[in-house]
Amino acid sequence: MSTVRIRAVSPSNELHVLERPVVDNVEAVPAAISGSPRRRRRWGRATVLGAVIPIVLIVLWQTIATSGLVASYRLPTPLSVWAAGVDLYERGVLYQHVAISTQRVLVGFAVGSVVGLVLAAIVGLSTRVSELFAPTLGALRAVPSLAWVPLLGLYLGYGEDPKVALIAIGAFFPVYTTVASALRHVDAHLVELGRSYGYSGPALLSLVQLPAVVPAVISSLRLALAQAWLFLVAGELLGASLGLGYLLVDSQQNGRIDRLFLTIILLGLLGKITDTAVGVLERFLLKRWGS
């Protein structure tokens, strides 16, 4: 009953609305700034709150699936999805699907973002090189990345390489575009400051340009990771014998709606986990290099 009142009192503080009494809500404002135990409690609170909607959704899902409103071959129950997962796990294939997909994503992401960072540095730091490369890269970027699939298949066969290459292409462009443009837009005043105090070349780079683009690098990596998962599924949908994308196709063809749901949920979870990992890196780097 008190929650409604709290919302009326402090509309800006929604995070604390649902499960805390009034008194505690008052001290919650400084808690955001100070003291690690408080911050941890706040973090815990956010986790609890973040779990609310998924739980509600699962309950709703269960209700609808068991109500008979939707046929079971169209909507499996949460429990049958869980059972499908346990079944695949016990047969030892679940791990294989997850592992190979994660590996493809990580390798493709690593290759794509490293190449992206290097090219962005070259193009972003030299106007001459930029004039040479930028139009070509811009044109390549205009090609919808999935259009590469047949060509990659032809050149690289149907093993791991074309899938990793496709993911690398997907991860490359966000990193390249964002970082190159960030480097080009580093405050010229700060660059001049560095030069006037005797910095040049790599020393100037590490004094001014690199720290200045750290936020852009991180957000581009996050974007690239999301792209990597997207391209993974695309790549595996179009030809694979293992992996979550393959599991999607296979389940669809065999009418295994429970496995289809399972795979979608797994992809969501894995994407969220890798994104969280980059988020941790982000927090660490921004504390050091943020302004």
Binding site: H189, L193, Y197, G198, L207, A212
Partner: peptide
């Protein structure tokens, strides 16, 4: 004319930029 401080460095570390390389 503008202070031109590096926003990611502390005040101390900004002054250090002025030291001889």
């Amino acid at each position: 004319q503008e202070p031109r401080l590096l926003p990611w460095r502390s005040i101390t570390r900004n002054v250090e930029v002025g030291l001889p390389r």
